[in-house]
Design a protein around this nucleic acid. Sequence first.
RNA 1: GUGGACGUAGCUCAAUCGGCAGAGCACCUGACUGUGGCUCAGGUGGUUGUGGGUUCGAGUCCCAUCGUCCACCCCA
Length: 420
Amino acid sequence: MRYRRPRGVNDILPDEVGQWQRAETAFRRLCKRYRYREIRTPVFEQTGLFTRTVGEESDIVRKEMYTFEDKGGHSLTLRAEGTAPTVRAFIENNLQGQDRERLVKLYYIAPIFRYDRPQAGRYRQHHQAGVEAIGSSNPAVDAEVIDLALAFYQEMGLEDVQLRLNSVGCPKCTPAYVETLKAALGAHVEELCPDCQRRYERNPLRILDCKQPACRRITEQVPKLLDMLCDECREHFEGLVAALDLLGIEYVLDPHIVRGLDYYTKTAFEFVCKGLGAQDSIGGGGRYDGLVEQCGGEPTPGVGFGIGLERVLLARKALGLEEGEPAREGVLVAALNDEAWAEAIKLTSELRDAGIIADLDYRRRSLRSQLRFANSEGFAATVILGEDELAKGVVVVRNMQTGEQQQVARTDAVEYLRNF
RNA sequence: GUGGACGUAGCUCAAUCGGCAGAGCACCUGACUGUGGCUCAGGUGGUUGUGGGUUCGAGUCCCAUCGUCCACCCCA
């Protein structure tokens, strides 16, 4: 029986790991600069954490979760998104401490699991790099997380990233808007797509997100939530826009951004990158002022985003930004006969003990083949050990970049190669 | 979850109407008996995704299944 990887999941192979580490390192460095601290939460959580926060009506909960029962009969779910687990850990470990005004800034890089039909840029396991800033309702914090995300895209060489911005209001203004929306749509319900007719009853806001041309025509006529925000939400949105202007960040107002997670309040945003086909959203987030309380904590506002790393890497590829050849490094110790082979094993070990990358060609082939091996494997140097060298107590060091060779006393070999 | 395209060597792809499974790259060996990259010569490599069916004969036609991709949907 030959096993294959399950549908929609990927192996990250040695040749690809470099670009992942590059992205992760860049994200970590930026987070540190903005003073976000890393948090690592479990790969599964109690199912209720997701169903109650993301929303029973969301696609994620209705059909995309990896849910299973453990031997104790508890319903668990693989991490379906990044915010709820972070908020859960924030509350459970009392990360805010006694200072109720303190802003706790956290980041994570973690796999996310959703059962969806796979496609390029859409997988059943993908990875998100995200931040959560919990404890402040200041719109300057919304601007800070957006600024951080954009800094990451820039660091990754993605130039044409568009910020799409909206406000989805709060429990004080959204219900009134929903009534207005339903009233405005009421006469056209028959013309909406079947999904939207469903949404009309259960989650009318999502109709604004529908991309069906027929629905689009109708929703364009309808009043915008942005024009009906309560004073608090309007002031917050104006504050965010002002802060973005201060930072020189451009944005496009997009009333269609509702986002598929129910906990969002006020700010909602999305980052879009051209050239990725249908899966062109490379990140998104928003504010969730009711989430901490909903998860059993003290009422505490928060804002954050998640960035899809697979899509960032795909975008780099589409732009031709793939990694170049890695720099040559390390030493191949080549042996020409059995006596030299024994010495080669010893020298390799000494080099490794000295912290130098070193290896042997265990196939015991001709010098020609060993040099070919050293070349294709990207070694910086080859040490040649043969009859002559053993007799003279020396080694020959060949620079694989230039082809220059140097005879070095066997006793000085490790030191010479340390400074190579 | 809906509709569609495509699965042939490690990689990229050929194979006419159903008639001997091929090329380039890569890899191995040699030309060069102790010197890589360039060149040249030779060579290894395949259950044509998998399982059935039709046929004298299937990579090719039919059915199923798995996978990848595209659009929708959704999202990152």
